[in-house]
Design a protein around this nucleic acid. Structure first.
Lengths: 195, 195
DNA sequence: ACAGAACTTGACCGACGGTCCAGTTAGGAG
DNA sequence: CTCCTAACTGGACCGTCGGTCAAGTTCTGT
């Protein structure tokens, strides 16, 4: 498992340019209007470069997502309660769902775009539930539920809760700026559920 | 609003053949392996005929879905309690979710295929939340929740519950034959939620 | 300064949903 | 039974898009 040789400077510059262009385009267009060629053009690189860097459309979206989500992951693993360790599971779950809704709201169509990429992939490439972000969110929620309500099917309930970030009805509210309403609703559900 | 002239006999025969072929192919293949051309070939008709009958890939999937869901809709509107009117909302919701999980389990990849068609559509054609089936399920669940728990955001919670039938984590359990587990989990959630 | 690994590029490919229209056929009117 | 026409059929064709690749270019360690 030797350390890989570092990325060349020009390559790193292009990676940033591509990520930035994709983010910008996704801010103002639906995912199916944002082809890879368009992203490449906006980034000032060739289409081949995008695939060289990210492997596929799904890979690009995944990279975009991981970038936007890193801070939350760190806060959960080692930050202060109630997000980090130390608080009771019910409070941690409420705080976590709040944070997740916040991320989803701030990043508009990103999750939608990732799901869209998954649905339109040409070559098999794993499922939503193989996505590292989904996986870690689901694992976290599962363990909190299992701790607070051992009688529930934690795995399933976690899918329902985390999966709602990939739910069109919910996504529409988020895009419409009603993130506070979504956060409140999720909070109410979490509180009803963990009793 | 005049009554349309009835469908010609050969057209009706082909409609059945297409629906049957699609269902059969979906039983044993992932949605992205089932192109319209393949369905047409299996049905023994030309590709053009499929589009003439159903308008688009989404239209075909929608027709398939509505066919498989009609009985449930009738039971909800006019059947005996607890599915039909008369029972308390909590019981009706539990019964309804049970029935919905049953439909989803019995029809394997159908819902997935419908969502896939929506995601890969070439021309705008409405969203999941415009689908008559989704719409009616969501409306029903919303009204039951609103009646039993006026303090909850019924619309949002209904999206989360109904949307889980379109959730990959849940769909995988269903495909794996664990529908009893899904039903039990949904039941537990519904009971925790409506108190 | 140089070698060679890393990177870039855009023409090209295959797949697929959807369109179109020339040709065929059902089935009611007379 | 014949005829007329609206309904239906089918498959060649189109545009788009994700992904590939071989040939050329540019870093960068020595």
């Amino acid at each position: 498992m030797g350390e890989q040789r570092a990325e060349r400077a020009d390559a790193a510059r292009n990676r940033r340019a591509i990520l930035g262009a994709a983010e910008e385009l996704l801010r103002s267009h639906a995912p199916d209007e944002v082809s890879i060629e368009r992203i490449a053009a906006a980034a000032g690189v060739g289409k081949g470069t995008v695939f060289h860097r990210f492997g596929s459309r799904v890979g690009l979206m995944r990279a975009l997502m991981e970038e936007r989500v890193r801070a939350l992951g760190e806060a959960v693993a080692g930050g202060p309660p109630p997000l980090g360790p130390g608080a009771p599971p019910r409070d941690r779950l409420v705080a976590f769902l709040d944070a997740v809704v916040g991320v989803a709201a701030r990043n508009g169509r990103l999750i939608t775009a990732h799901d869209h990429a998954l649905a339109t992939r040409r070559h098999a490439e794993g499922r939503l539930t193989d996505n590292p972000v989904y996986l870690s969110w689901h694992a976290h929620v599962t363990s909190l539920i299992a701790e607070a309500r051992p009688d529930l099917d934690a795995d399933l309930v976690a899918h329902v809760l985390v999966g709602s970030m990939h739910n069109e009805g919910v996504a529409r509210l988020l895009l419409a700026g009603e993130s506070e309403r979504v956060a409140a609703g999720m909070r109410a559900m979490a509180e009803s559920l963990l009793r």
